[in-house]
Write a protein that binds this DNA or RNA. Structure first.
Length: 425
RNA sequence: GGAAAGUUGGCAGAGUGGUAAUGCAGCGGACUCGAAAUCCGCCGAGCGGGGGUUGACCUCGUGCACGGGUUCAAAUCCCGUACUUUCCUCCA
């Protein structure tokens, strides 16, 4: 959520920036005039309330002195009804202001390239080269089904499309990967390991920006206000919701493995096969809560933490900066990491690291006291480190051999009980 | 799922209709070589306005879990919701 004062005082600038994110100009103009109107009425009603407070004190005096106060009481009845009318009007305007402000995306950082969609994203760097195959590389779902380590058919039978069973060494591989990721983040990158709730309440979904705008993207539990988390970012970032931290608590680094549940409404027909787009997938998430000075340094470090995983796995990838039109709702700046998927002959997103600046902390009220004891909004960052299912897909494809077997990346061998290869039984 | 109690400032804890005691903590000062103890003074979040500065400040409103209601006036009365704790039941 944007700071109302910032919007008001820098309206032209804010408007220009939000237009690059697809917000309509008239929405912003309405927003500004509603705010103006609200403040005018607020001044009036506050004057009346001040008057009421004064006279009420007088009434109390008269009552104590057992004097007649009927005249003042009658006057206050009138004032009271005026206050009520104004309060109702203000409340109504307030609601309209909120309805708009809840759906306005974050302001892009100045360094973010302006653009319409993913075609305007900017590549920052590449690491390693796509492997060359002496045979036609197969898509990961074919490799996996031949090795009997993934079962999409039975996933569909038991749950529906976009659900899968990992089986045998497939399940073992998934577990090896996320243990490796967690160990690396905890023991090398300094994150605190968490196991968060996998269902969260409405306030938490609002806090990180999923609600109210993106309700159709999630699985809502019936007859409750609980939602299955679409990412561990939600419970991790909301950990400090409605709290004021001390500066010593910052920066805080959290990491967690969790399943992520997404309805994938509107993506029918896309990535219908394989591990790329499922209703449920595992992800190791990184979240940082920082002060408002160091968050961009922390973002760079977080991206490096994610890259470190890919480098240790020796998976070719590239880093891109998302343009204004392609960024997520809460982000001020986002780097995506895209891993090489040989069978598709392209890079696919495997991590997304964002600095949300104070956008989420305004919603979730995550604050800290600075060295002057002043309350400041914290900055929040989140990034995948990494999407586990997509990592499995990348490994199966990049490490596949002509005979249908898959070599285990060196760094995972200890996590696989010494096993170096997955072969057909 | 059943029953009861509770939710007040950083913490503890009063307050059953007249506008939030008190203690601890914190800040400033005195005493002291310094510290502790003691004494004196100050301070109660947060949120939203207005004026002013540009982020020293002044001022008002709001604020006693949240949302409504009654009243000239609500922490106090009424209704609803959430959460916490304890007991019972159930259960990995």
């Amino acid at each position: 959520m944007l700071d109302m004062k910032v919007v008001r005082q820098n309206f032209t600038d804010v408007k220009a920036k939000l237009l690059t994110r697809g917000v309509k100009a008239e929405v912003l103009d309405t927003f500004l005039s509603l705010d103006e109107n609200r403040r005018q009425k607020l001044v009036k009603v506050e004057e009346l309330k001040k008057y009421r407070n004064t006279v009420s004190a007088e009434i109390a005096q008269l009552k104590r002195a057992k004097t007649d106060a009927a005249a003042k009481i009658n006057e206050m009845k009138e004032v009271g009804s005026q206050i009520k009318v104004l309060d109702e009007q203000i409340q109504e305007i307030d609601q309209q202001v909120k309805d708009i402000s809840y759906t306005l995306p974050n302001l892009p950082n100045d360094a973010v390239p302006v653009g319409k969609d993913e075609a305007d994203n900017v590549e920052v760097r590449r690491w390693s080269k796509a492997p060359t195959f002496t045979f036609e590389p197969k898509p990961h779902w074919e490799i996996a089904e031949e090795l009997d380590i993934l079962d999409f058919e039975r996933g569909a039978k038991v749950s529906g499309s976009r659900f899968v069973y990992y089986k045998g060494l497939g399940a073992r591989l998934e577990r090896a990967i996320y243990n490796f990721m967690l160990d690396t983040h905890v023991y090398e990158h300094g994150y605190t390991e968490m196991i968060p709730p996998y269902a969260v309440n409405e306030a938490s979904m609002f806090g990180t920006g999923q609600f109210p705008k993106f309700k159709e993207d999630v699985f809502q539990l019936e007859n409750s206000n609980l939602t299955l988390i679409p990412t561990a970012e939600v419970p991790l970032t909301n950990y400090y919701r409605d709290e004021i931290l001390t500066q010593e608590q910052l920066p805080t680094y959290f990491t967690a493995l969790s399943p992520s549940f997404r309805s994938e409404a509107g993506s029918a027909g896309r990535d219908t096969r394989g591990l790329i787009r499922l209703h449920q997938f595992n992800k190791v998430e990184m979240v940082k809560i920082t002060d408002n000075q160091t968050s961009y340094d922390e973002l760079e470090k977080m991206v490096q933490n994610a890259e470190d995983i890919l480098q240790k796995l020796k998976l070719p990838y590239r880093v891109i900066t998302l343009c204004t039109g392609d960024m997520g709702f809460s982000a001020a700046k986002t780097y995506d990491l895209e891993v090489w998927i040989p069978a598709q002959d392209m890079y696919r997103e495997i991590s997304s690291c964002s600095n949300c600046e104070d956008f989420q902390s305004h919603r979730a009220m995550i604050r800290y006291r600075d060295e002057n004891e002043k309350v400041q909004y914290a900055h929040t960052l989140n990034g995948s480190g990494l999407a586990v299912g997509r990592t499995v897909a990348a490994i199966l494809e990049n490490y596949q051999n002509e005979d249908g077997s898959v070599t285990i990346p060196e760094v995972l061998v200890p996590y696989m009980g010494g096993q170096r290869k997955i072969v057909k039984i």
